[in-house]
Design a protein around this nucleic acid. Structure first.
Length: 742
DNA sequence: AAGGCCCTTCTTTTT
DNA sequence: GAAGGGCCTT
């Protein structure tokens, strides 16, 4: 067992800990995933445990895949048979197998967030409720929250009018799911728990099967997940969990880091192992991160240490506005790339909200710099993708009312509100789902008993659609391969002509369809069911191509968990963004925002840049921003400040360089010279340009110097030109002429 | 029934 | 500054 030799003592203790319960509290970069994979390898190879009796649960598909890859490296042939996947994927698998005990059959479809909102909007309308008072999104949150806490529609409290109404919506929503032969994300977990609680023989079967249960990111489990684990481990009670309270960032999804403490109470004999050696970051990064996280109450103190040395100070850079913020990030990265001291894949840019990626993308495009964007794009959220998935879902499960409503008139074929209502009415009276009624209409035409329920024109149109659906279903049952089915649907409805309609983004949309088609090819031998299940459970966060990246990565702080990069930019270090305004008044939520910042900081191996903007456009209009309160937590000696003024040292600064007579620059604010010269600068050359200097460029004309610094034997000047706005120039090449002060 | 235009509203974070 | 909904016209 050579692989044990590569572990440090604490890691080895964790990997080889005896049976029973183990709680591994692992700081960032301490080899958490390593411990988990080695543990599995040790169980199989060292203790002779059968792979198929091991259940390993992760939160993201990305993490699951990563573990799979590492297992393959560790064990010859990998560890096939291990139930390795996300909570949701493992539950889907169990539900599919045990559908005989469930209120839906094994052709059930999984409703995503958009589908859920669509159902709720309709329910709210059907109940004649005011859509402003009862917003679908809020109701959705309430229902999801209930489900995460094991509260079913029947159990939903009615202490207030609002709760009463919510309960009614919840019930109707649940009815729609069932008549659609569907579950939502939360049902996957809740129904599995219910299955195991209500059917002792089934519980017994799974509990006996899973000799070992291992859990990653345990701090992010919610109550349903915790119960599920307890049920699954109820026979052998071998449960090995790994987590870090300080990295709990999914409270809003019901995650409760106190499950860590609950675990210790529920399993008093559990062995607790701390992993404190960090193999990722410099001591400066760790010290800064600790200074931040120590402001949070109720946590297990940890002493992370690193032997990587002190490293570079954290750069705090302030810009005039959000455009300059993005420009700074892109320019800085490009500088590193140009001098060959870093590769594109060394960089990550992190932000609190997806909306912040837009300006970054634009800046990258303008600079001609390739980048990888995680999430945000919402490939699966695109109209054309959702359309095609809806067709496929209908073939798989004609009861899916959400999908039917989505595509019954795609491409437009004359089915409007009236026809749809007629269809639904007829279906309800026939005690049949609209989808099945449609198929009957398609198969029998005017001989169908339902034909008479529609006027001539809509009857014709509906039976046409029904005929298509019926034909697709038979083709699928006769074993038509998935890609061929996909093509057939495209051809039958004339989808290409519909989506690539000569408009500007037509070709892009069609390209997306082809991308989905390519994906269908990969599932050719696994079939429609697996394809749909994966589409539902694989998120946009997982679309990031793996392997050595050569371009900077743009991602949210949430998506960054579990990853590491040589250099990390965290942008939007402003009050209202981080911490987010929605969490301002709640201590627990502010604490979570702090953990989010902590997660971001600890992703960095070598360098951190914290960037903020003095004004920023949130909706449309620019608004003045205050620096994030978290910046105050950083010890001054770990930080280098650059860019615009920052309260505190503003006064000193005025003495050093008198403000120019005329207000210039962006939004009327005046950039000043940094208080401390850059640590990295090599003062061999004499600095020629200073903030607020007026300069002339042969091409771009007159501009004003925002900032200048000497670095790597040259002087880099940031200039704001009237013509082309912000530019970063190398002084020796740019041929800049200094103009006399006005 | 469909498409176009204007209005509002909105933004956390994701399986 | 986008996307969805409501209201208008064809």
């Amino acid at each position: 067992m050579d692989y044990l030799k590569t572990l440090n003592p604490a890691q080895r203790t964790a990997v080889t800990v005896g049976t029973g319960q183990a709680l591994v509290l692992a700081g960032p970069g301490s080899g958490k995933t390593r411990v988990l994979t080695h543990r599995i390898a040790y169980l199989i190879q060292g203790l002779g445990v059968h792979a198929h009796t091991i259940l390993a649960v992760t939160f993201t598909n990305k993490a699951a895949r990563q573990m799979e890859a590492r297992l393959e490296a560790l064990l010859p042939g990998g560890a096939p048979g291990v139930w390795l996947g996300t909570f949701h994927a493992n539950c889907a698998k169990i539900l599919r197998r045990e559908s005989q005990y469930l209120p839906f059959d094994n052709h059930y479809v999984i409703m995503d967030a958009d589908d859920q909102l669509a159902i709720l909007r309709r329910v709210i309308k059907d109940l004649n409720l005011d859509e402003k008072t009862f917003r679908a999104a809020n109701i959705h949150a309430a229902i999801s929250n209930a489900k995460n806490n094991l509260v079913t529609a029947g159990d939903f409290p009615t202490r207030s009018y609002r709760e009463e109404v919510t309960k009614r919506i919840y019930e109707r929503y649940q009815d729609t799911l069932r008549t659609s032969n569907a579950v939502d994300f939360d049902d996957l977990l809740l129904e599995t728990v219910r299955l195991l609680v209500e059917n002792p023989p089934v519980r017994e079967r799974y509990a006996r099967r899973f000799e070992h249960v291992l859990v990653d990111e345990f701090q992010d489990t919610n109550l349903v997940q915790y119960e599920l684990l307890k049920l699954l481990a109820s026979y052998h009670a071998n449960i090995f969990v790994v987590g870090d309270e300080d990295q709990s960032i999914y409270r809003w999804r019901g995650a409760d880091y106190r499950n860590v403490r609950r675990f210790e109470e529920d399993y008093p004999a559990c062995q607790k192992i701390l992993l404190e050696q960090n193999y990722r970051s410099t001591q400066t990064v760790l010290d800064a991160a600790r200074a931040v996280i120590e402001h949070n109450p109720y946590r297990t103190p940890k002493h992370l240490f690193s032997d990587r040395g002190k490293g570079e100070r954290i750069v705090l850079y302030e810009t005039a506005d959000d455009h300059a913020e993005a420009a700074f990030v892109v320019d800085t990265i490009q500088q590193w790339l140009r001098n060959g001291k870093a590769g594109g894949g060394d960089f990550a840019v992190m932000y609190r909200t997806n909306a912040q990626s837009r300006l970054l993308e634009e800046a990258c495009l303008r600079a001609g710099m390739p980048y990888r964007l995680v999430g945000a794009l919402r490939f699966y959220g695109r109209r054309e993708i959702k359309d095609l998935i809806a067709f496929l879902r209908l073939v798989h499960n004609p009861q899916d009312e959400v999908s039917l409503a989505r595509v019954i008139n795609v491409p437009p074929r004359g089915v409007g509100e009236k026809t749809l209502v007629a269809l639904n009415m007829a279906a309800r009276q026939a005690n049949l789902s609209p989808g099945w009624l449609l198929i009957d209409l398609g198969r029998k035409g005017s001989d169908s008993p339902y034909w008479g329920r529609f006027n001539g024109r809509s009857g014709l149109v509906l039976s046409d659609i029904g005929a298509l659906l019926a034909a697709w279903r038979s083709a699928n049952e006769d074993g038509l391969p998935l890609p061929a089915l996909f093509d057939r649907i495209l051809a039958d409805v004339g989808y290409q002509e519909y989506i690539d309609d000569g408009s500007q983004d037509g070709p892009d949309r069609w390209e997306n369809v082809e991308e989905l088609r390519r994906l269908a090819y990969e599932y050719a031998d696994r079939g429609l069911n697996d394809f749909l299940e994966n589409l539902a459970l694989v998120s946009d966060q997982d679309t990031l191509p793996e392997g050595a990246a050569s371009a900077p990565t743009l991602l949210t702080l949430h998506a960054a968990k579990g990853l590491e990069f040589a250099q990390v930019f965290i942008i939007g270090m402003d009050e209202g963004l981080l911490p987010h305004s929605r969490s301002r008044d709640d201590h627990e939520e502010t604490a979570e925002e702090r953990r989010l910042f902590y997660v971001g900081l600890t992703r960095a191996k070598d360098r951190v840049y914290l960037v903020r903007a003095n004004t920023r456009s949130t909706y449309g209009a620019p608004e003045v921003q205050e620096p994030s309160r978290f910046l105050e937590d950083l010890p001054e000696e770990l930080v280098q400040r650059h860019g615009q003024r920052r309260n505190g040292y503003e006064e000193d600064h005025r003495k050093l360089s008198p403000p120019p007579a005329k207000t210039w620059g962006i939004n009327g604010s005046i950039p000043w010279r940094p208080a401390n010269p850059a640590q990295t600068s090599t003062p061999i050359i004499h600095q020629r340009f200073f903030p607020a200097d007026r300069v002339r460029h042969p091409v771009w004309g007159e501009g004003i110097v925002l900032e200048s610094r000497t670095q790597d034997g040259d002087e880099t000047v940031d200039v704001f030109f009237e013509t082309v706005k912000f530019k970063r120039l190398v002084a020796s090449l740019a041929n800049l002429e200094i103009l006399p002060k006005k």
